[in-house]
Design a binder for these strands. Structure first.
Lengths: 367, 367
DNA sequence: CTGTTAGCGCCTTCAC
DNA sequence: GTGAAGGCGCTAACAG
């Protein structure tokens, strides 16, 4: 079948150990011998067997990357930057790993299943991206799994999800977190400062950390303006500011945005602005508003989140909160490769930036 | 360190061979023994060593996916569908492979490098996506490499690139091709039928097969309308239809579209329509036209290609050619897994569909 | 500097 | 049905 180390050794007239040394280059070998070996390798078109090497050396060339869906630009950008970062570099020890991309679809079970598959492969590292599902049992399961991976030498990095707390001392799991809360707060403050008071909120799935953080930021901004949610008792829903009535939950997809916008208009026709769960959802919101004959931002302002590439080309260009996803992905890549030291406390928080564009404007003055 | 088969065997009071048989389930084992083994596995939190298994059984759980860039929705959609297809299914033999995503950035060298890395890993399959670089030496190198991979049992699938011709009998390399030529032709015919005669063409990188095919389709449509490129001799550039002057090459990115549109307007201010290399480029074209104060489609019509998700939300909604990328990716996944038989001739051509939306309209009548 | 010798952890004929 | 033994291809001590 395939040519092996022994074949090369035979052809070069040396022992297989010598060939191994030449290949790995981390051991002194005489120049003439080295050349002979290299020639034999070329002539035989020899390609090392990574699995055998991995088994013998107890190393791995694989790094797992868990994403909800690579087709979603949010994850695509992270995965791309990450892959480029770990794939580059020499074919030596700390360079040239392969990225194993796993679509979990946001399913906790899939997450655990892939974690098992990666553990099977004795992956050199694992990166979990995107918001976490905030279910106690699942969090515990993931924590335990990651602790085990880390303990067995797998580098574990969290990117875009909140840090995990481990029972024992931190097993070296590092986190690249996004400042979703701060970004959301600044975004809502921007709308408030424009004069909006009835701000609809189309959020993501209830159980995800990203959803919660963005919602918290939004509410914090409202509260600072005295528009916090009132206690349910005695609330009659007359005055503006009823946070729960102005909040609609949905998925992180365009269709959810479309539906949620219609629902919002039904509940509160006077809404003057809508903050969406992310840019994709915002596009759905915009489409719904247009279909209703509403002008953006003339009649209603709309804002997204993430600043995905298409946002600037949307109609109108979307006001949003920028997350430097490629930087984050690259950083996660460096961390998982051990090319960059872990930040103090094991958590690096990536700042987010408000991008004011054409989809937000002061509310229409009442006619 | 990690718990091994032997540990499980010891705990269950059986031989390691028996444990192996229980795990793989492809051999008769007594019910009681099986239960004992399974309990031991659970109690010890045993996870098979994929590398050792791969080495011993000469199998692999890895499928390589070469893309230009996963962050590009075109590739992201293919990769996503592919991953979901191969990742699903039981953890048995023909189910549950891991997708190794490799960003080549369109570089021939990177392509070969990753092919080597995947060969190292003895990948179960390899899928090359997107247009090929049409360089003779490189094509030969890739062909040789793929022939070797295929010969050694690796399933090789081409997705979105033209079929390769192998010196010997076809080594079972199957191709999922896109009808770029037909799609481009119908798109340009659409513009011609609207009355356009000076149609600018912003194409992709010269050396890529996708670029060539789309350009061929475009030119075929023009030729059918008697607007083919005139022979250089005696051409004075007066009449419309000078294909080369109306064609600008660039990359497959937004910035290229922006620049190319400006260049096109410089060369030929009377252009009434522009077909772009793909949707991303089209967005750049639209941005440039807007910045020039031109209305789309009032002053100039613009069309894209691929029908990426954001195209429908562009301003105005983009007329484009739809390629069912997820279907293609899923099919490539099934083919590489051997779950679907190869099409006759080894080539399946995916049809493309013209999507007429708001960015194209009849040309403005001369004032 | 180079060859020899053991395994890495698992699968897979063979016997029983 | 189950155990014993050999080997997958390579690396890593250990001698020399």
């Amino acid at each position: 079948m395939a040519v092996t180390l022994a074949d090369v050794a035979a052809r070069a007239g040396v022992s297989s150990a010598t060939v191994s040394r030449v290949l790995n280059g981390n051991y002194p070998v005489a120049g003439s011998t080295r050349e002979r070996v290299q020639r034999a390798v070329e002539e035989l078109d020899y390609v090392v067997n990574g699995q055998a090497r991995a088994l013998a050396a107890a190393t791995s060339d694989l790094v797992g990357v868990l994403v909800n869906d690579v087709a979603d630009p949010f994850f695509g950008l992270i995965a791309s930057a990450l892959q480029s970062e770990i794939g580059a570099g020499g074919s030596g020890p700390a360079g040239g790993k392969l990225a194993v991309v796993c679509n979990t679809g946001g399913s906790p079970e899939a997450e655990l299943t892939y974690l098992t598959l990666l553990e099977r492969q004795r992956a050199a590292g694992v990166v979990l991206t995107g918001g976490a599902v905030e279910d106690e049992a699942h969090t515990a399961a993931v924590t335990a799994r990651l602790a085990r991976l880390a303990a067995s030498g797998t580098a574990v990095v969290l990117c875009g999800r909140p840090p995990l707390t481990f029972p024992d001392e931190s097993p070296g799991v590092t986190t690249v977190a996004f400042d979703n809360r701060g970004g959301a707060r600044r975004l809502t403050e921007h709308l408030l400062s424009l004069g909006h008071r009835k701000i609809g909120c189309v959020t993501g799935p209830l159980e995800r950390s990203t959803t919660r953080h963005r919602l918290e930021g939004h509410r914090a901004a409202l509260a600072a303006y005295g528009l916090g949610p009132r206690t349910a008792a005695g609330a009659d829903g007359t005055a503006g500011g009823d946070a729960s009535r102005l909040t609609v939950h949905g998925g992180y997809d365009r269709a959810s945005g479309y539906d949620a916008a219609l629902e919002l208009l039904r509940r509160e026709p006077d809404v003057t602005a809508i903050v969406a769960a992310n840019d994709t959802v915002a596009l759905g919101v915009c489409a719904a508003l247009r279909d209703r004959g509403l002008n953006i931002p003339g009649d209603i302002s709309v804002a997204g989140f993430d600043d995905l590439p298409f946002s600037v080309d949307a109609s109108p260009a979307l006001t949003t909160v920028r997350i430097p996803l490629q930087e984050a992905g690259a950083r996660a890549g460096r961390l998982v490769m051990g090319r960059q030291s872990s930040p103090p406390g094991g958590v690096a928080t990536i700042a987010t930036e408000l991008m004011v564009r054409a989809s937000t404007a002061p509310p229409k003055t009442r006619s």
